[in-house]
């Protein structure tokens, strides 16, 4: 593998990804007043994160059952406790413990 090609490719792709993330910050310098756009952007995080979580969490481990268990424990922990670190660690511990059983 030609290392000049690799470094050049990395530079091109890193800059591209940076620009994708940076342009909106330059374009939307003022608060948007349009209610539809504001509402849409307000809902974006909930939809995006929900879509990315399910069903990916179920197939993230090498065992569907431990993934499902992590989903259920994560939902309960988030509903009743809500603390970020606690929920994340609960999910990890669930996968570890169910891994001992299955």
């Amino acid at each position: 593998m030609n290392s000049n090609y690799i470094y050049f490719s990395l530079l091109v792709m890193c800059l591209t990804v940076y620009c994708i993330r940076m342009l909106p910050f330059l374009v939307f310098r003022k608060e948007i007043t349009n209610t539809f756009v504001r509402s849409f952007l307000y809902y974006v995080p909930y939809v995006t994160l929900a879509v990315m979580t399910f069903p990916a969490i179920v197939t993230a481990t090498d065992n569907v059952w431990s993934g499902l268990a992590a989903l259920v424990v994560g939902l309960l922990a988030a509903w009743f406790k809500g603390d970020l670190f606690f929920v994340a660690v609960s999910c990890c511990a669930t996968v570890f413990l169910t891994g001992l059983i299955f």
Binding site: Y46, L49, T53, G67, G74, F86, A88, C91, C92, V95
Partner: peptide, 17 residues
């Protein structure tokens, strides 16, 4: 395996409350 669900747990902690 255990570490790979950490991120999803965080997502749940963000959207569920």
């Amino acid at each position: 395996n255990a570490l790979s669900v950490s991120l999803y747990g965080m997502f749940l902690a963000i959207i569920i409350p």
